[in-house]
Amino acid sequence: MSTLHSQTGFALQLTDVTKSFGEISVMKGVNLAIKAGERHAVIGPNGAGKSTLFNLISGMFPVTSGDIALNGRSIVGLPPYQINRSGLARSFQITNIFPRLSVFENLRIGVLARHNVRFGLFQPVSRMRRINDEARAILAEVGLDARAADMAGDLTYSEQRALEIGMTLTTGADVILLDEPTAGMSREETAQAVELIRSVTEGKTLLMVEHDMSVVFSLCDRVSVLVYGNILATDTPKAISENREVQEAYLGEETAS
C-alpha cells in the first residue's frame, strides 16, 4: 500500500482512520485510496463497519484518528454540509428523503444548494428557470418524470431508491457514496438500479457498499473487503473472489454462484 503516500490521482484517500465508540473500537486503522473516476465497492460481513465508514467519510461522525482527503484536501473535522460543498454526496442505507415534499421538490432542494441560493428569500423559486430545468433533467435521468408531482413518501420502494440516487447527484458532487443502493430489491429492480448507477456515475467517482456480488462484478472496477474495522484486501472483483483469505473471512458459500 505504498501508493497511499501519493497525493495525486486519488479522489478519496483514507489514511490510518480509526474510530472508537467509548471502549469499542470499530475502525482499526483503515487505509483506502479511491482513484478519480473509478467505481469502487466496499464489501464485508454484517457489522464489519461499512456504514460507519460512510458516516466517517461524510462527516456524520468525527474520526478518532487518521486522515481523510477529498481530492487531495483533508476533510477531517468538517461538518457534513461543508464536506458536501467540497464535492462529496452520499445516499443512505435506509431511505432518507423528504417524504411530504413532491419528488421534484426533493431534487430541487439540492440543486438550489449547488447554485448558492440556499437562503434565497426575495424571488419565487418557480421563476428560477435554470434551477428548475436542472432539477427536471435529473428527474429524467433517474426515470421519475411521471412521478414529479407526487409526494415522495408515496413512491414505491425502488422508486424511492432511485430518487435517493438522484438526490446525491443534485449538488454536483464528483464523488458519490451509495450505501447499499440495491438492498431489498427484486432481481429486475436490481438490474435496473445497476444500469441507473452506471449511467449517472459516468465520469464521476463512485464508492458503494454492496452485498450482492453480481452487482459488484458488473459495476465495479475494484473491491475492498472490510472485516471488523480492517481492510483485508483491495483488488479487482475477480481477484477478490479468488482470494482465499477473503473467502474464509467472508464470502464462503456465496462465491459458489
Binding site: 454526496a89 423528504f98 430541487r108 432542494i109 439540492g110 444548494a113 437562503f119 423559486v125
Partner: peptide, 22 residues
C-alpha cells in the same frame, strides 16, 4: 414560494438529509 420557504419544509421533513445536501 421562495427557495428558503421550500427549505423550511424540507427541514421539517428531514433535517439530517438537508445537512448532507450542503
Amino acid at each position: 414560494r421562495t427557495p428558503f420557504g421550500r427549505l423550511t419544509l424540507a427541514i421539517r421533513d428531514n433535517e439530517q438529509r438537508v445537512r448532507f445536501l450542503g
